[in-house]
């Protein structure tokens, strides 16, 4: 449908003012909210994510698109809720205890929402027990942790160990990221995935969430 392509293109261009009327128009045309979401907004964000992954665009362009995504979601959300359409799953994110740096974590959160996840952002300086308790309480599928300081990385292991101790490792997956963190470190502490950047983090969460469905 042409209007869904227009929504996706408008979103790719980061035109938040343009997305809203197009989404309304699509609904007036009789297209259901879930289709507008999947084939308009998420399709557009997927293209943006791929362009970002291959360095065709850079971060500000992605965030302009994310804002456009949010503008479209503001229109769709009440309809999706009343139709009982569920998100792709809940993800708990935060910067680990001892770390106040949260810009990277915020960006991952924005892109996860853009990918259709429900994100519970615990902010920064988050204790291991808080990550796990929140994930349990909200039935989250994935915990995403960020650290910028080498001295705070061990908190990530505390979360992984706590999940194992409570036999939750199969139900709640973990992904880690941040400047001092690596794929090797993820393997070393038993985290389920590692995200080098926002795009990789979102791709990792998608895989993990699908694995626990």
């Amino acid at each position: 449908m042409e209007i869904l392509k227009q929504i996706a293109q408008c979103l790719e261009a980061g035109d938040d003012a343009g997305v809203t009327p197009l989404v309304r128009q699509a609904l007036e045309d009789g297209i259901i909210a879930k289709t507008v979401l999947d084939e308009g907004l998420i399709a557009g964000m997927n293209t943006v994510g791929e362009k970002f992954r291959v360095h065709e665009i850079f971060l500000p362009d992605v965030l302009l698109a994310a804002k456009a995504m949010y503008a479209g979601m503001d229109v769709l959300k009440p309809l999706l809720i009343s139709a009982g359409v569920s998100s792709r799953g809940r993800v708990v994110i935060g910067s680990v205890q001892g770390d106040l740096h949260d810009i990277g974590k915020n960006l991952v959160g924005i892109m996860l929402k853009g990918a259709g996840f429900e994100v519970i952002d615990l902010g920064n300086d988050v204790a291991a027990s808080t990550f796990v308790a929140t994930a349990k309480k909200h039935d989250a599928r994935v915990i995403g942790m960020s650290a910028l300081l080498t001295t705070t990385m061990p908190v990530m292991k505390e979360v992984v160990d706590l999940l194992k101790k409570e036999n939750l490792g199969g139900r709640i997956k973990t992904i880690i990221g941040g400047a001092p963190v690596s794929q090797n470190y993820a393997g070393e502490i038993g985290a389920d995935a590692y995200g080098y950047d926002c795009a990789q983090a979102v791709a990792g969460v998608k895989k993990l969430a699908a694995a626990v469905q």
Partner: peptide, 20 residues
């Protein structure tokens, strides 16, 4: 700033990014 935000070396930012 552009490099810190991930702009590939040798690439030019979009007009919207430059305005930002």
């Amino acid at each position: 700033v552009y490099a810190a935000l991930g702009l590939k070396s040798g690439s030019l930012p979009s007009a919207r990014a430059a305005a930002l």
